[in-house]
Structure formats: structure tokens, C-alpha cells
Write a protein that binds this DNA or RNA. Structure first.
Length: 641
RNA sequence: GCCCACGUAGCUCAGGCGGUAGAGCACUCCCUUGGUAAGGGAGAGGUCACUGGUUCGAGUCCAGUCGUGGGCACCA
């Protein structure tokens, strides 16, 4: 007698061992059809798995998270089968599930062409229609190595060879295709169908750039066509808010072939950029920072002192002058900062020194890494270096974290995750010092009652760090801020301060950034807001437009007055119908459109329309001014967005 | 840096089997002075990324370079 307990607590008895499929069929034919796998006592198994003893069983369908993963995993196998049919000389390697889909890496001399994807998809559909049952077989490791080697699947053999000898391996067979796999899998290829192959890519064998490159095919797969369609639509939506597209459309910035990885900021983009700096400056002033500015180009010897010349050389832009002196463009602001700290004697009474710099740094990033504003070679950091005593460190860390989170909130990033990275294998400084630094950083997070994830061994060689990850409105994560403790530079530059008893000590040096790269943060904001910037950030806040030439002077006077009041205002006096101007300015995503006709001119008012189409009616400038001031002050938009 | 794709007017894109370029929007001018998402007409605008090759002749074929996009690797 086998007793099966289902998730709802109900129980079923069977006279002899029973498979997951049989239990499902016993419950109902609809469920039997939808069943993809089972979870027996917490372990995922195939539907053909025979349950011999009393157990708890959960039936897995496409509606479960595990079921969706199964579908994706099995679709990867399906694709591999199709590829082997069409291109028999191809070797299969690995094909894991990833977010929203899967990929499979293949080894073959000829790379796949984009048009191959269609043929593969068609072949996949055929295999689905053939509805091959998927069956599991077991093999000893050495036997399996032999088996795949005989088939000419060298990569599979290599994968298996790395598996411990005593482990039994499972293979899954579907029609003419067999693959090494831990499983479980869906019961037959007919269960699949809602998939699409999305992209081709090269990928290094075992993720190592020293190895040969394989051909990777990415795909997405879902429980049904409806979900697939919804996913493809989400992709389209995301594309619409792509900062590169909006950057052009809204005339914010531009890239040019002569300056790869460098931004040409157009007036509107630069206005946005300036808002960020102005805002940050204000927040830093309030938080007790001083601001400095250090040279962009400094002699090689300084970079030797800092260690960058030895450790970071391949990422640095260098330049040589007529007199043969070698200079480097700064890839980081810290050496300049320490240089300023070192000027004159510092007393413990001077600490903490919080020294901010909006420094533009230059890093020679690999060409393949460049990506719009998100990864550039020349960018501005909202950098700061805090010099303090060990005793002050935890408090300073706490203040940095507080400031960061408060700043992020002003941009509507309420969901911020912290990642804590501690000592790596390769590091400087003794363990006692690392203990102190790590506990200070962690102590600051704990004192604030914040959650964080832990990245063991991921700290910098010179100190532990905290990373701040923002989640935007469409659920994507962006690592922006960092807080790092630095043991290295104070030592290398011999930075000190005078203690109360007349001795000398080394200050602790904290590096911190909130936005990280202002270029990148601007890009994130563009996508986060989909170009609909809240009033305080909008490059152009208002456009005044006349209905006919008769109100041109009045419109200009209104525009002038609003500028006097500090609002970024433009006028549109073109000889066009009002509908045309409204459409044009709405597409530019201007938050406020002010329309003036004879009525408004006579009454001394403006008709106000928001970019989402809301008509606020006519009002005097004073009333509008108050509304605008309130909206700017609270930073989040009223009404739309 | 590596793999694949792409690079035509300011923007978005057309240009079957090679015969020195086209549309829409934007721009300029003219008509129109019109109350909440495109009024009409005319005009101007391109060394088809760059370099070299094949050819009587090359956006169109080939090679290289640069750049962009999607991945991989990288992001101390």
C-alpha cells in the first residue's frame, strides 16, 4: 500500500508503486494532461517516476515556477535536437535555463547565421508535432564518457569527465536525440510550443576568454502562447524607453564615431545633467562636505605612487608631450584627493574631512563593453573621499548610507538593495585591520536595521565595500553607489594626522559615490521615467504657445516672466495651428504647455495643459507659479508619470 | 578584446539578378491667423562610414579599418 499526500492535505492510496503520471490521471484527465513533473518529498522528478513508499506529492504544471523552468529547460533540449538534425556536425555542450528563457552553446566551425534560427525554429515545431516521449536512462560515468565520445560529442565527454566517478548519470532520450542531463524533463516534446529563438552570440567555452568560442543561441519559452506574446510585448515596451532612443528623440545627447565611449551632451541633456550636479551639491553642502577639483592629467610618477600605473595601466589613457614627459588622464579621483589632504598638517580636530569632487574620469574600456550612456570611457563621478579616525568610521559609514538612501528616494527609487563584499584572497593589510573595517561597515548597516546580501570575497584588494543596487520602475537592477574602505592609498601617499597626544596616525579613507557615473545615472533616469521627467528635472519645464500672431507679444512676456521666476521656459510662436504645436511639444514630453489666446490675453491668464493631456483650465501666473514651485519642491510629479 | 549582425539626407527607413540615389517627418520660403495631438503648396538637403580591390561601370560584389547593436569576456 502506497499512501500519497497531496499539498491540500488530501490522501490517496494505491495498492502498489505508482508513477506521478498515474496519480495525476487518478485526480483528473485535465490535470493529467497538464502535468509536467512531480515534486516527491521536496524533490523534483519526472512524471514517469515510480513512488514506492508513502510520500508527499505535488503535481507540477506550467503554472508553477518549477514547471516554467522545466519548459525552458526542455525547450533547450528541443532546440539542441533540431540543431543536430539540421547540422549534424555540430557538437552540443550545455544548455541552461536563464531568466525568461534558455540558451544552448554549440561547437561547430561554421557560425550560425541569423536565417538559421528560422529553420531551427521550424524544425523544433516539427519535433513538437511528432510528440516524442522523453525517457530517462542511467549510466556509469566511464560508460557515459565512452558513449558520448563514440558519438563524437567531445565536449559532453569532457563535462562528464569532471563529474565525480561514483555519481550515476542520467541521460534523456527523445526520438533521435539523447543528451546528458540531471533532469527532470517534461514527459513528451508535444508539451512544448510557446517559444521563440531570440539571439545569436559567441560565448567562451566554460566562460573563459582563453578558451575557444562556442556558438550560443538564446531563446525564450513560456507555458502558453499568450505568455509568450506578453513577454515579447514587454520587450518592445522596454525598447521604447531605451535611453539611446529617447536620447536622440528628446535631443538630450549624441554619440559620434570620432569619440567612441564619449558623450556629446546637447543643451537639453546637459540641463538634466546640471540638475543632478546642482542637487547633489546642495545635499553634500548640507551634509558637511567640502568640494574640490583636481587635475585631469597628471604625471606618471603620481600614478606609480598610487599603484594605478602598475595595476590599472591597460585601462588608462596616456599622453606624451614634446619634452618626453608621460602623463595619464585620471581614471580615478582618489590620488588627486589624497594629494589635497596631504597639504599641510592635519590634526585629529580636523577630522572627519569629507572631500567631494565631480571629477571626470577616463578609462579605456574594452570596445565590446561600451553601451550607450551605461558604459562609457569618459564619465563624471559624484565622488567623495572621507578621511576620518578609526573610531569615527562606523558613524561616517552610517551617514553615507543614510545620505545615499535619501537621495535615491528623491528619484523614486524606493527599492534599494545593499550588497556587502568582504575580504578577497588577494589583499593587503593584516587580518586584525580587516576585522575592524568589516565590522565597522557591517555595523553601520546593522545599526540602521537594513537588509543586505553578502558577497564573500568580493571586496577590493584594499578594503571591503558596500554596493547600492537600485531597482527601476520596470524591475531592472542597476548598481550605482558604492562605499569602500581604503587601506592602500593612505599608506602609499603616507597620509597622516596628528593625534591628541602628539603622535601620528593614518586616517581611514572612505571612497563613496551615490550616482556612481553621472552619465550612467542620467541614462538610468531616462529609462526609469521613460523620458517623462518630473518637473524639477525636466530640461524644458514649460512651453508657452500662442494661438495667433495677435498674442505673440503676450506669450513672450509670459515666457519672460516665468524665466524670471526660475522656471525653464520656452515659447513657441510658430505660424502653426495650436493642435500642431501641442502635438509637437507633447512628443517632446514637456511637462506643462501654456496656451494663450485672446481670452487669456484679456484676462491676464494662461491656459494650462499637462503632458498627459489633462486640461487645468485658465489661471493667473501667480497661481501657476505656486503650483510649479510646490511640484518642484516635492520633486515627484503631481498627477502624471 | 572575441563571435554574429548592421552602418544610405538632421531623424526613421526604401533601394529585385552591379548602370553614379528615393519616401515620410524635421528644415527654409509662400498661402493660411486657425482654441487643445499633424492645414495646404513650393524648395533646399546625400563624397551611400572610411580605405583598397574586382569591373567598361559598385550603396549594390570582395578585403581591411573605424563605429554601432546583441551576446561573451572585462568592470581592479
Amino acid at each position: 500500500m502506497v499512501q500519497i499526500t497531496l499539498p491540500d492535505g488530501s490522501q490517496k492510496q494505491f495498492p502498489r508503486p505508482v508513477t506521478v503520471a498515474e496519480v495525476a490521471a487518478d485526480i483528473g484527465p485535465g490535470l493529467a494532461k497538464a502535468t509536467l513533473a512531480g515534486e516527491v518529498d521536496g524533490r523534483l522528478v519526472d512524471t514517469s517516476y515510480a513512488i514506492a513508499d508513502d510520500a508527499r506529492l505535488r503535481i507540477i504544471t506550467g503554472r508553477d515556477e518549477e514547471g516554467l523552468d522545466l519548459i525552458r529547460h526542455s525547450t533547450a533540449h528541443l532546440m539542441a535536437q533540431a540543431v543536430k538534425r539540421l547540422f549534424p556536425e555540430t557538437q552540443v555542450t550545455i544548455g541552461p535555463v536563464i531568466e525568461n528563457g534558455f540558451y544552448y552553446d554549440f561547437a561547430r566551425d561554421e557560425p550560425f547565421r541569423p536565417e538559421d534560427l528560422e529553420a531551427i525554429e521550424a524544425e523544433m515545431a516539427k519535433i513538437v508535432a511528432e510528440d516524442h516521449p522523453v525517457s530517462r536512462e542511467v549510466m556509469e560515468r566511464d560508460e557515459a564518457v565512452e558513449f558520448f565520445r563514440d558519438m563524437g560529442e567531445e565536449y559532453k565527454a569532457r563535462i562528464i569527465a569532471d563529474i565525480p566517478a561514483d555519481e550515476t548519470l542520467s541521460l534523456y532520450r527523445q526520438g533521435d536525440f539523447i543528451d546528458l542531463c540531471r533532469g527532470p524533463h517534461i514527459p513528451s516534446t508535444g508539451k512544448l510550443g510557446a517559444f521563440k529563438l531570440t539571439k545569436l552570440a559567441g560565448a567562451y567555452w566554460r566562460g573563459d576568454s582563453n578558451n575557444e568560442m562556442l556558438q550560443r543561441i538564446y531563446g525564450t519559452a513560456w507555458a502558453d502562447k499568450k505568455d509568450l506574446k506578453a513577454y515579447l510585448q514587454r520587450l518592445e515596451e522596454a525598447e521604447k524607453r531605451d535611453h539611446r532612443r529617447l536620447g536622440k528623440q528628446l535631443e538630450l545627447f549624441r554619440f559620434q564615431d570620432d569619440a567612441p565611449g564619449a558623450v556629446f551632451w546637447h543643451p537639453r541633456g546637459w540641463t538634466l545633467f546640471r540638475q543632478l550636479i546642482d542637487y547633489m551639491r546642495q545635499r553634500q553642502d548640507e551634509a558637511g562636505y567640502v568640494e574640490v577639483n583636481t587635475p585631469d592629467v597628471m604625471d606618471r610618477s603620481l600614478w606609480e605612487t598610487s599603484g594605478h600605473w602598475q595595476n590599472y595601466h591597460e585601462h588608462m589613457f596616456t599622453t606624451q608631450t614634446e619634452d618626453q614627459r608621460v602623463f595619464a588622464l585620471k581614471p580615478m579621483n582618489c590620488p588627486g584627493s589624497v594629494s589635497i589632504y596631504k597639504q599641510g598638517l592635519k590634526s585629529y580636530r580636523d577630522l572627519p574631512v569629507r572631500m567631494a569632487e565631480f571629477g571626470k574620469v577616463h578609462r579605456y574600456e574594452p570596445s565590446g563593453a561600451l553601451h550607450g550612456l551605461m558604459r562609457v570611457r569618459h564619465f563624471t563621478q559624484d565622488d567623495a573621499h572621507i578621511y576620518c579616525t578609526e573610531e569615527q568610521m562606523e558613524e561616517e559609514c552610517r551617514k553615507v548610507i543614510e545620505l545615499n538612501l535619501s537621495v535615491y528616494r528623491d528619484f523614486g527609487f524606493d527599492d534599494v538593495r545593499l550588497k556587502f563584499a568582504d575580504r578577497p584572497e588577494n589583499r593587503i593589510g593584516d587580518d586584525a585591520t580587516w576585522d575592524k573595517l568589516e565590522s565597522a561597515l557591517k555595523g553601520a548597516i546593522d545599526a540602521m536595521g537594513l537588509d543586505y546580501t553578502y558577497n564573500p570575497g568580493e571586496g577590493a584588494f584594499y578594503g571591503p565595500k558596500i554596493e547600492f543596487v537600485l531597482r527601476d520602475t520596470i524591475g531592472r537592477d542597476w548598481q550605482c553607489g558604492t562605499l569602500q574602505v581604503d587601506l592602500n592609498l593612505p599608506e602609499r601617499f603616507d597620509a597622516t594626522y596628528r593625534t591628541a597626544d602628539g603622535g601620528e596616525r593614518r586616517p581611514v579613507m572612505l571612497h563613496r559615490a551615490l550616482f556612481g557615473s553621472l552619465e550612467r545615472f542620467t541614462g538610468i533616469l531616462i529609462e526609469h521615467y521613460a523620458g517623462n521627467f518630473p518637473l524639477w528635472l525636466a530640461p524644458v519645464q514649460l512651453v508657452v504657445m500662442n494661438i495667433t500672431d495677435a498674442q505673440a507679444d503676450y506669450a513672450q512676456a509670459v515666457c519672460h516672466e516665468l524665466r524670471q521666476r526660475g522656471f525653464r521656459t520656452e515659447s513657441d510662436l510658430r505660424n502653426e495651428k495650436i493642435g500642431y504645436k501641442i502635438r509637437a511639444r507633447t512628443l517632446e514630453k514637456i511637462p506643462y504647455l501654456l496656451i494663450v489666446g485672446d481670452r487669456e490675453m484679456e484676462q491676464g491668464t494662461v491656459a494650462v495643459r499637462l503632458r498627459d493631456g489633462t486640461d487645468l483650465g485658465s489661471m493667473p501666473l501667480d497661481v501657476l507659479g505656486q503650483r510649479l514651485a510646490r511640484e518642484v519642491a516635492q520633486r515627484r510629479a503631481i498627477g502624471d508619470n
